[in-house]
Design a protein around this nucleic acid. Structure first.
Length: 302
DNA sequence: ATACCTTTGAAGCCC
DNA sequence: GGGCTTCAAAGGTAT
């Protein structure tokens, strides 16, 4: 089922408009060094989130992956719209051959999927109800602020159920310490520009494309992200910058390192396969990582 | 119950 | 400094 949905996403990707300026305007942000940028004041953030809106809650039609007779490729190709074939065995440098993927399905207006299943039922053009991005709402997590509430970066750790008193007596000091550690709320990393974009657009994509699986949705969002204009992306880079700034002010001693190793990996080797050296392509092999597009100076609002 | 998948970007680590 | 790794979100799927 999972793979089926990935195939669906593949179909969508095949027809989503190629990035207009792909490779021309990535927006690497200069790192926000703690030493160079001491927290002086809490940024005025609330207006920044005015633009966040959530999509109309549509009833999703039957999952497109369940449709019969839809030919699907073996694997999700790279977002570039190219198939890649990588060869090379142990001790060999991979040799990657890429060629344009054939258009398998006709385009649809929004997602590029074939129109042989129901389109989203929401009235087209219906205004999306606005909401304020929960992260960074002014006062959020700021002690003493009237609207003070836990910053979304803080999440209770998923500690196991409390032991009964009898069991507690059996615990060693080390156990107790470990438990205390586990109960400490985890401070999450601040969201980067793309994460903020995903958070905003996810529901819209779900409504438009009638997908549910996040992996498939994220592929679409990744492509759309590249299709955004420089100015549109800059908006999210700026939000992310503010997010990092606020995060730094709220948790001065926090480091991303604090959360390292908190996610247990089932098979480290397998994970490495999928993160370094590229993702599996349509043939289940690992193509070379696409060259990073040329950087550009992000619009900075100071 | 929890890791995996999938995306990009930021940050940490190692050489 | 460059390259690799980890983790942020999300929710269906796999283990």
């Amino acid at each position: 089922m999972y793979k089926e949905s990935v195939y669906s996403a593949f179909n969508l990707l095949m027809h989503y408009p190629a990035p207009s300026g792909a490779g021309q305007h990535p927006q690497p942000q200069p790192p926000l060094h703690k030493a160079s940028q001491p927290p002086h004041s809490v940024p005025q953030l609330s207006p920044l989130y005015e633009h966040f809106s959530s999509p109309h809650p549509t009833q999703a039609p039957a999952d497109i992956s369940q449709k019969q007779g839809v030919h699907r490729p073996l694997q999700t190709p790279e977002l570039s719209g190219f198939y890649s074939l990588t060869s090379g065995g142990m001790g060999q440098l991979p040799h990657t051959v890429s060629w344009p993927s054939p258009p398998l399905y006709p385009l649809s207006p929004s997602c590029g999927y074939r129109q042989h299943f129901p389109a989203p039922t929401a009235a087209p053009g219906a205004p999306y109800p606005r909401f304020t991005h929960p992260s960074l709402v002014l006062g959020s997590g700021v002690p003493g602020h009237p609207a003070a509430m836990p910053h979304p970066a803080i999440v209770p750790s998923s500690g196991k159920q409390d032991l009964q008193p009898y069991d507690r007596s059996l615990k060693t000091q080390a156990d107790s310490k470990a438990e205390k550690e586990a109960k400490k709320p985890t401070i999450k990393k601040p969201l980067n520009a793309f994460m903020l974009y995903m958070k905003e657009m996810r529901a819209k994509v779900i409504a438009e494309c009638t997908l549910k699986e996040s992996a498939a949705i994220n592929q679409i969002l990744g492509r759309r992200w590249h299709a955004l204009s420089r100015e549109e992306q800059a908006k999210y880079y700026e939000l992310a910058r503010k997010e990092r700034q606020l995060h730094m002010q709220l948790y001065p001693g926090w480091s991303a390192r604090d959360n390292y190793g908190k996610k247990k990996r089932r098979s480290r080797e397998k994970h490495q396969e999928s993160t370094s050296g590229g993702k599996r392509n349509a043939f289940g092999t690992y193509p070379e990582k696409a060259a990073a597009p040329a950087p550009f100076l992000p619009m900075t609002v100071l």
